[in-house]
Simulated scan of single mutants.
Amino acid sequence: MTRWVVIFDDTPGMLSVRKARGGEHIAYLKENADRILIGGGLRSVPDAPFVGGLWVVEAEIYDEVVELVLNDPYFSPEHRKFRILAWGKALDRSVTL
Score class of each variant (00 low, 15 high):
76 S>K: 02
62 Y>V: 05
27 A>D: 15
31 E>C: 08
97 L>D: 03
75 F>H: 10
97 L>W: 10
77 P>L: 06
31 E>K: 00
39 G>Y: 02
54 L>K: 06
70 L>D: 00
70 L>R: 09
82 F>M: 01
13 G>K: 01
46 P>C: 08
65 V>M: 07
41 G>C: 03
5 V>M: 11
29 L>Q: 14
3 R>H: 13
80 R>D: 03
42 L>N: 09
96 T>L: 07
60 E>D: 12
45 V>P: 08
69 V>Y: 09
19 K>M: 15
52 G>M: 04
94 S>Q: 05
73 P>S: 08
42 L>Q: 14
57 V>S: 02
76 S>W: 07
13 G>Y: 04
4 W>E: 02
49 P>W: 06
35 R>I: 05
97 L>F: 12
53 G>L: 07
95 V>H: 09
78 E>G: 06
59 A>L: 07
40 G>R: 03
74 Y>G: 08
89 K>A: 11
48 A>M: 10
5 V>N: 08
28 Y>R: 03
35 R>F: 09
75 F>I: 07
3 R>K: 14
66 V>S: 00
67 E>H: 07
72 D>M: 04
50 F>D: 07
93 R>V: 15
55 W>M: 04
5 V>W: 03
35 R>T: 12
79 H>G: 09
81 K>C: 02
26 I>S: 05
55 W>I: 01
32 N>P: 00
74 Y>L: 02
23 G>I: 09
9 D>K: 02
41 G>Y: 09
94 S>C: 01
2 T>M: 13
77 P>C: 00
28 Y>E: 07
19 K>L: 13
94 S>A: 13
37 L>M: 14
28 Y>S: 01
57 V>I: 13
27 A>G: 04
75 F>C: 02
5 V>A: 08
2 T>N: 15
29 L>I: 15
57 V>T: 08
29 L>V: 13
31 E>H: 09
11 T>E: 11
84 I>E: 04
8 F>P: 06
38 I>F: 06
66 V>F: 08
53 G>M: 08
15 L>E: 11
70 L>K: 10
92 D>H: 11
6 V>Q: 10
77 P>R: 00
67 E>N: 12
2 T>K: 06
50 F>M: 13
48 A>F: 07
12 P>T: 05
88 G>H: 03
79 H>V: 06
26 I>N: 10
7 I>K: 03
32 N>F: 05
55 W>F: 06
20 A>Q: 12
1 M>E: 01
51 V>K: 00
83 R>W: 03
37 L>D: 14
31 E>T: 02
2 T>A: 11
67 E>M: 01
89 K>D: 14
75 F>D: 02
90 A>D: 15
61 I>T: 11
31 E>G: 03
48 A>R: 08
9 D>Q: 06
28 Y>Q: 04
58 E>F: 05
15 L>A: 14
37 L>C: 12
25 H>R: 04
72 D>V: 02
80 R>S: 04
54 L>S: 11
2 T>S: 15
30 K>W: 06
7 I>W: 02
42 L>I: 13
76 S>F: 05
58 E>N: 10
41 G>A: 15
86 A>T: 15
76 S>N: 12
62 Y>A: 07
58 E>L: 05
12 P>E: 13
51 V>I: 15
35 R>D: 14
63 D>R: 11
89 K>R: 13
63 D>A: 11
54 L>Y: 08
24 E>K: 02
52 G>R: 03
82 F>K: 00
52 G>E: 08
